[in-house]
Write a protein that binds this DNA or RNA. Structure first.
Lengths: 203, 203, 203, 203
DNA sequence: GATGAATGAGGCTTCATTCAT
DNA sequence: AATGAATGAAGCCTCATTCAT
C-alpha cells in the first residue's frame, strides 16, 4: 500500500507550522508565545506539531535556519543577473531598504533579533548563531568584497573583515531601530547615509 | 512615631534588588529569570521585593529608567570638563568603546537590548522606549550637534536628526554585536571605523 | 480524525469536578477551599481541571447554575403528576423539608448561601443571582400562584409578587438556620408553621 | 509615672479598628478583606492592630460579639418605655424595618450573615454562634413571649420555642434577601406580611 | 505602645510535553 | 500520522503575622 501521506504533504505541514510560529513568536516573543498559539494559528494539532518538531526550541532553531537559508538562496539567485560587485552591494542595500515596509519582514526581524540576543544565553543556539555569522553572513560579504578587489572595484587597502562586520552591524542596527521605533525613526534617511558611508569606506 | 528604617537603608535595598535583577535578567533573559532567582541572588525575601516593586515588570521598567538616567547624568557631568563639541563626541565613543570590556556593561546591554526589542509588543513599555529615544537619546545628540554648528565645529549642512539617529544605530549595533558575538566580532576595528565615518559625516 | 475521548466521558469528568468542588466549598467555604483540595478529592489533575473550567470562580458559577437548573427541572417533572396548585405547593414544601436530612442538600445549601451572600460584592455574580431570582425562583412561584388564581384555588386578592418573595424568604431562612444551627433549631416545627402560614396567606 | 496612654484612648482605638473592620469585611468579605485594608481605612498601623487583637479571626469574633451585645443593650433600653408585649414586638419589627435603609445596618447584616454561615465550618465560631442563638436571640424572644402569656396578650397555646425560631428566621431571611437583592426585593411588603403573620400566629 | 519593613508559606494559573486512541 | 485530553512542575503574587527600633 502506498503511503497515504506524501512527503510533499508533510513538508507543507512543516512549513505551515514554521510560518505560524514566525507570526506567533513575532507577536508575543518566543517565551510568551505558546504551542497553543501555534496550534490556533496553524490549525494543526498539538500532537502533530510534536511529530514534526522535538521541542518548542527546536521550532525556533529550525525557523531561524530555514529563513537564513532562504535569504541567501535568494541573494545568490538574484546576483546572477548583476554584473558588478557594486551593483550587488547596492542590490543588498535595496533589498533591506524595501523590506522595511513589509509585514513579514518585520516579523522576521523581530524574531531574528530576539534569537540573536537570547542566543548568548544558550550554548546550543549561540554556537549556531556564531557559526551562521562567520560562515554565512560575514563570509558572504567578505567574498563579495574580495571579488571586488579582484575586479578593481574595491580598494585593496580595505579590511574586508572589518568592513563586512561594519556592513551587517549597520544593516542590523537600522532594521532593528526601524522595527521598534517605527515612524519615530528616519529609516530612509539613515539608510541612505549608511549606503553612502559604506561606499566611501570601500573605495 | 518616626519610621524605624531610614530612607537610605530602603534605597540601598531597592538598589540591591535592581542590581540583582540586572544580573538575573542578563543571564537568563527577562521572561526566563524568576523572582526566586532574584531572591537567591539578592538575599532579600520575596515578600520584601514586592514591598519595593509592584510586579516583575515594574522591576524591569525601573531598572531601565534608573540606568538610562544614571547614564546621562554621567555624560553631562563629564562634559563639563570638555571644551569642544568634537571632544565631547570623541568622549562618547570612548565611553562605549571602553564599556565593551566590562562585565556590568555587557549585562546592561543585553537587558537594554531585550527591553528595547520586546517593547514593540507591550504598549506601555513601547511608549517609554519611544519617549526615551526621542527626548533623551536623540535629543542629547541633536543638542550636541546643533551646538557644534553654532561653534562652527560642525557643518551647517548636516541633518542633525539623521546624524543623531545614525549615531545611536551604530553604537547600538556595535555594542549588541559585540555582546553577542564576543571574540568573533572585531569590536575595536569596527568601532574605530564608526568613529571615523561619523566625523566624516558631520564635517 | 474523530475525537478520542467521548463527550460522555468528558461530561462525566466535568460532573466529577463539580461534585468535588461542591463538597470542598461546603466544607471550607469558597475562598478557603483550594484547587488542590478539589484535585485531592476528585483525583483529577490540576491541569485537567483547568481544561474544563477557566478559573476557580468559573467552577463556582457553573456549579450554582447547574444545580439551580437541575432543581427546577426536577420540580417541573414532578409537577406533571400533580393535579392541583395546592398539591404542587405542598410538594415544594415537602421537598425542602425532606432535603433537611440529606448530606448533599446541606452542602448545596451552604454553598448556595455563601454564593448568594457574596454575590453582592461581585458585579458579575450579582447579576447572575438577580437574574436567577427574578426569572427562575420568583417567576416559578408567581406562575404557580397565578395559575392557582385561575383555577380558583387561590384568592384573587393575593399579591403574587409579595407572596412569592415571602415564600422563598421563608424557605431560605429555614434551610439556612437548619444547616447552621443543626439540632439547636426546631426545623420540623418551624417548617410546619411556615407551611400553615403560607396557606393561610394565599387563601 | 502615670500611663501615657489612657484606658479610654485605648478603647477608642480598639473601637476604631472594629468599625473599620466592619466596613472592610462587609465590602470584600472576611477572607478577601486584608489587614492592610483595615490599616488603610482606620489609619492605625498594622503592628498596633496586633496589639489589640491576636489574629484576624479574633477581630471577626470580637466584632460579632460587640455588635450583638450593643444590639440587645439597645433593645432592652428601648423596652423600658414600652408597656405591652405587643408593643415591644411591634417595636422590634419596626427596628429591623427601619434598619433596611441604613448603610451601617447593611454592613452589619452582610458580615453577620457571613459569620453565621461560615461558623458551621469552624468549631470555635460555631460554638459561639450556637451559644448566642440560644442564650441571646432566642432567649430574648422566648422571654418576651412568655411574659406575654402571663399578661394574657399572647395565647397560651403558642409554642414559644417554635415561634421564637420562626421570628428570627423571618427577620434574618428578609434582611438578608433585602441586603442582597436590593430593589429587586419587595422589602416593605414582605415585612408587613411577616409582621401580620407573626401576630396571627401568637394570638 | 506604636510603627511598618520583612518574611515565606501557600494560592491560582499556565504551559511544554506525553500518550492513549 | 493525527488528535487533544491529561499531567504536574513551576511561576507570580498575596497576605497574616512577627519583630527590631
Amino acid at each position: 500500500m502506498a503511503p497515504i501521506v506524501t512527503e510533499e504533504h508533510k513538508e507543507n505541514r512543516r512549513k505551515k507550522i514554521l510560518e505560524s510560529a514566525l507570526v506567533c513568536f513575532s507577536e508575543k516573543g518566543f517565551e510568551a508565545a505558546t504551542i497553543d498559539d501555534i496550534v490556533a494559528l496553524s490549525g494543526i494539532s498539538k500532537g502533530s506539531i510534536y511529530n514534526y518538531f522535538k521541542t518548542k526550541d527546536d521550532i525556533y532553531v529550525q525557523l531561524m535556519n530555514e529563513y537564513t537559508h532562504l535569504n541567501f538562496e535568494h541573494f545568490k539567485k538574484s546576483f546572477r543577473d548583476l554584473a558588478s560587485v557594486k551593483e550587488k552591494i547596492h542590490y543588498l542595500f535595496d533589498l533591506y531598504k524595501n523590506a522595511g515596509g513589509k509585514e513579514k519582514a518585520k516579523h522576521l526581524l523581530l524574531v531574528h533579533g530576539e534569537f540573536f540576543l537570547s542566543s548568548s544565553r544558550k550554548e546550543e543556539n549561540h554556537t549556531l548563531v556564531l557559526e551562521r555569522y562567520r560562515n554565512v553572513y560575514k563570509r558572504f560579504l567578505i567574498d563579495l568584497l574580495e571579488s571586488g578587489k579582484n575586479t578593481g572595484e574595491i580598494s585593496n587597502t580595505v579590511n574586508s573583515d572589518i568592513a563586512a562586520s561594519f556592513f551587517w552591524t549597520m544593516i542590523d542596527g537600522i532594521c532593528l531601530d526601524h522595527a521598534v521605533l517605527g515612524a519615530n525613526y528616519p529609516f530612509s534617511g539613515v539608510f541612505e547615509k549608511a549606503e553612502e558611508v559604506f561606499f566611501q569606506m570601500i573605495q
